Simulated scan of single mutants.
Amino acid sequence: MEPNIGIKKDNLSSVAHELMKILADEFVLYTKTRNAHWNVEGPDFHSKHVFFEAQYEELDEIMDSVAERIRSIGHYSPATLKEYLSLTHLTEKSRSANDGAGFIRELLSDHESIIIHLRENVNRFANEWHDLGTSDYITGLMETHEKMAWMLRAHLR
């Protein structure tokens, strides 16, 4: 049964597709953060290992929330690596060194990219697709990424 929530079917489809891109970005960032957690080396290993764990756990909750938002508006969430890689605007990078500062710079860049993408779409959700709920939702998501980026940035001072 399709949701009857005051948003046109075509608009729900557009919102869902944009949310799928956000989910893909979150999944790629989650994977890169897990990689940092597993593979960081150096004199600050333990503190970075614990820090990256806290970050990927927060990203795990975000992914679940985005997927559930997609489901709540009547669409299915992508759930394959192939789909995520075709939807994301982030890149998979291979690192030559596994130092904490290098991982932090890379993850910070991805968070900032997601923040910009979310900020650019807040008004689209509200004005173009008439979905104030999703507009509000991604505003909160943007704020979460801003805090996560701040935490990463603080390590580089």
Rank of each mutant, 00 (worst) to 15 (best):
P3W: 12
N4T: 14
N4H: 12
G6K: 13
G6F: 10
G6C: 09
K8M: 11
N11L: 11
S14W: 02
S14P: 06
V15A: 05
M20H: 15
K21W: 03
A24G: 13
D25W: 07
D25V: 06
T33I: 04
A36M: 02
V40F: 02
V40Y: 02
P43R: 13
F45N: 06
F45D: 06
H46P: 06
S47A: 15
K48Y: 14
H49L: 05
V50E: 08
F51Q: 01
F52K: 00
E53K: 05
Y56I: 09
E58W: 04
L59I: 12
V66H: 03
A67Q: 07
A67N: 09
R69N: 04
R69E: 05
I70G: 04
R71Q: 10
R71V: 08
R71M: 12
I73P: 00
H75M: 07
H75V: 04
Y76L: 13
S77A: 15
P78C: 11
P78V: 07
A79W: 13
T80A: 07
L81T: 08
L81K: 13
K82C: 10
K82S: 14
E83P: 06
L85H: 03
L87T: 09
H89S: 11
L90K: 01
L90G: 00
K93F: 08
R95L: 13
S96G: 11
A97Y: 09
A97Q: 12
N98M: 09
A101E: 11
G102L: 00
I104S: 05
E106R: 11
D110R: 04
H111C: 05
E112G: 02
S113H: 10
I114P: 00
H117M: 14
R119N: 06
N121A: 04
V122H: 02
N123S: 14
R124A: 12
R124V: 11
R124Y: 10
N127G: 15
W129Q: 07
W129N: 06
H130Y: 15
D131I: 09
T134G: 05
S135L: 06
I138Y: 00
G140C: 03
M142Y: 03
T144D: 07
E146W: 01
E146V: 01
L152Q: 01
R153P: 01
R153A: 08
A154C: 11
H155V: 01
R157P: 11
R157V: 14
